[in-house]
Amino acid sequence: MFVSPHPPAPVAVAGTRPALWSLALTAVVAGFGLAVIVVNTLVSHLTVGLSQAVPICLGLVGCLAFAVALRLLHRAWWLAVLSVVPALFVLVGSVQLAPETVLRDRGVAQQVTITDVQTSGKRHEFALQGDSGPLDEPLVYSGSSPGYQVGQRLTVLVDPQGQVELADAEKVDVAGKRSMLVLGAVGWTLFALLAGWRGH
């Protein structure tokens, strides 16, 4: 039986990428995801007192761009679609961290009583009565089940500079928003690694 003295040459599979190139692309996508988180969080802090539409729109664009980058890296859409889950953590955490940090650092706690409520669609505005008189600013809740009622007493945090809307003190959770950012960053990094491996 004849045995060839030379081992067979490796067969190139169409569409494959060199390992170093795949590793570099994976690092770029993972780094881009972290950059989106840092930039949107910074923009949210810089625009405190202005409309939250700026960090929300920028965050949506960043999340969409990361999903497209995953699609290009993995060459399939299913992983990009699943990345929406950590993207929600990224968006909510990066947008809400700044105003809640402001309320935690300089907000003034006041004991108030809800005296009235005005509802327009899913927007609820609760009029508040403090110990020294009615508050000029209402407690705003957007959603179908606010969980507040007339006559209820609660503690709110009021920004003395008026840049941030007052909020229920129990709902201000800076550590929770930071945890959301960490979870979002970890999730995106894992998705990037998986996309790079499968794309390779």
Rank of each mutant, 00 (worst) to 15 (best):
residue 132 S to I: 04
residue 101 T to M: 05
residue 178 R to F: 10
residue 173 D to E: 12
residue 53 A to F: 10
residue 18 P to F: 03
residue 45 H to Q: 08
residue 183 L to A: 15
residue 19 A to F: 10
residue 116 D to Q: 10
residue 75 R to I: 02
residue 69 A to S: 15
residue 73 L to Y: 12
residue 191 F to I: 01
residue 197 W to T: 03
residue 82 L to M: 13
residue 34 L to W: 14
residue 136 D to N: 14
residue 8 P to G: 12
residue 107 G to T: 10
residue 116 D to R: 10
residue 64 L to K: 02
residue 21 W to R: 14
residue 19 A to I: 10
residue 106 R to K: 05
residue 140 V to K: 00
residue 168 D to W: 01
residue 130 G to H: 09
residue 89 F to W: 08
residue 185 A to P: 14
residue 77 W to P: 02
residue 96 Q to W: 00
residue 110 Q to K: 14
residue 101 T to D: 13
residue 198 R to Q: 15
residue 29 V to A: 15
residue 160 P to E: 13
residue 44 S to E: 03
residue 21 W to Q: 14
residue 50 L to S: 14
residue 194 L to E: 09
residue 9 A to S: 12
residue 14 A to P: 03
residue 173 D to Q: 14
residue 54 V to C: 06
residue 88 L to P: 03
residue 187 G to E: 09
residue 91 L to K: 02
residue 183 L to D: 10
residue 49 G to K: 11
residue 199 G to F: 07
residue 114 I to E: 07
residue 59 G to K: 08
residue 174 V to T: 13
residue 157 L to E: 08
residue 89 F to G: 13
residue 18 P to C: 04
residue 64 L to T: 00
residue 112 V to G: 00
residue 66 F to M: 08
residue 187 G to F: 12
residue 192 A to L: 13
residue 50 L to H: 15
residue 45 H to C: 06
residue 60 L to N: 04
residue 22 S to V: 05
residue 83 S to Q: 08
residue 126 F to H: 00
residue 172 V to C: 08
residue 104 R to K: 13
residue 75 R to P: 05
residue 114 I to K: 10
residue 193 L to S: 10
residue 112 V to L: 00
residue 60 L to M: 08
residue 119 T to L: 02
residue 31 G to H: 11
residue 71 R to Q: 05
residue 73 L to D: 08
residue 167 A to W: 02
residue 38 V to C: 11
residue 88 L to Y: 07
residue 37 I to T: 14
residue 57 C to P: 01
residue 175 A to V: 15
residue 5 P to M: 03
residue 130 G to R: 08
residue 128 L to C: 06
residue 22 S to H: 05
residue 13 V to R: 10
residue 122 K to T: 02
residue 41 T to Y: 12
residue 164 V to R: 00
residue 165 E to A: 06
residue 172 V to Q: 05
residue 108 V to A: 02
residue 102 V to Q: 12
residue 54 V to P: 02
residue 95 V to H: 06
residue 200 H to E: 04
residue 142 S to N: 07
residue 53 A to C: 05
residue 137 E to S: 09
residue 156 V to C: 02
residue 23 L to V: 13
residue 169 A to M: 02
residue 101 T to A: 14
residue 192 A to V: 01
residue 133 G to H: 04
residue 60 L to C: 12
residue 4 S to I: 02
residue 189 T to C: 15
residue 42 L to F: 10
residue 70 L to I: 01
residue 109 A to T: 11
residue 183 L to N: 14
residue 2 F to C: 01
residue 126 F to V: 00
residue 128 L to D: 08
residue 20 L to H: 14
residue 48 V to N: 04
residue 34 L to R: 05
residue 38 V to H: 09
residue 142 S to E: 01
residue 68 V to C: 09
residue 138 P to Y: 06
residue 137 E to Y: 01
residue 4 S to M: 03
residue 189 T to M: 15
residue 82 L to K: 05
residue 103 L to R: 07
residue 106 R to A: 04
residue 84 V to W: 13
residue 21 W to Y: 08
residue 61 V to H: 09
residue 80 A to C: 09
residue 183 L to K: 15
residue 81 V to Q: 06
residue 124 H to G: 04
residue 132 S to R: 14
